[in-house]
Amino acid sequence: MTVVQDRSVRRVPATAVAGTCAVLLAAGMASSSRVGPVDLPLGQLVTAVWERVTVGLEPLTLQERLVTEHRIPRILLAAVIGAVLAVAGCVLQALTRNPLADPSILGGTSGASLGAVAMIVAGASGPLSVTAAAFVGAGCGFAATLALAWRGGGVSPLRLVLAGIAVSYLLSALTSMVVFRADDDRRLRSALFWQLGSVADASWGSLFVPSVLMIAGVVVLMLRARRLDALSYGDLTATALGVSPQRLRAEMFVITSLLTGAAVALAGGIGFVALVVPHAVRLLAGPRHSSLVPLAALAGAAFLVWADLVGRVVAPPSEVPLGVVTALVGAPIFALLIAGRMRDELA
């Protein structure tokens, strides 16, 4: 991260960053599909995947099915979630003109946590009900933030951040309340597990529809990315450039909310991806959103695929929750960023 210290440093060409991220993503996916409790020889793995696609599940052994029905979907889910979170971070940081913005300070993550934790503590053990509660919770959290920040047909950056912080604190307090009032510590463990995030539960059935929707959402955000550049010059300039800042902000916020709501509902509260990945990419490739958003998607996907792999191999036979790994990697990077920035400002 030496880049941080000198902001006049040459940018890395976007194609180079894209290429590196794509290679990292591919390498991560390939390694991840090979590593785990089930150890299939490469040939058998390829044959199993081929049979799964052409014939179906019937001829596969338990071990082969564990790879095709659990490990591969979880790798894909990690990639999709990583992309969604990173793009959401980019967009939210642009909308609020605040480098610290991410879904967790805008009410989304805390809303999802409240929904999921309340459901888990109440004892609803159906996996779908927890996911649904998390999605509804995220939606409510974001909606409350938007409603609080709304004024004159749109939202201003500062109001959005302040409203988000108020909503997040309230919802986190309610989550703590639910946890504190719970009378079963075993349920609390599963609530904590949920809050730390995981893609271990991925299956083709649970993956398909949300993934298609999330990929579509990411594409929509990419297409609109150019307009975000206008926003970053300030509302007056944006208006002069023919962009209605208030409306654009509200619109983009809603799309981002739905996306992160879905991501958090499926994989729990995974921190730092939305916050750190956009910064890392921005430092390397520059702040232009037309390249920043797609690059962040790629980098976020690669980051989470590797994080999932790390979480699976460091403490077998247990798995380390994804949110722990991302934060352990994300926090030092973020600390470096902050240190670099502060040095710039003092200079």
Binding site: L24, A307, V310, V314, V329, I333
Partner: peptide
């Protein structure tokens, strides 16, 4: 993306340390 630059040793140790704290 500078994840691959971090050497796995200290990371694994950190993850493990946190895990131990988490599992009490």
């Amino acid at each position: 993306m500078n994840l691959p630059r971090i050497t796995p040793g200290p990371l694994a140790a950190a993850v493990l340390a946190l895990l131990i704290t988490l599992t009490g």
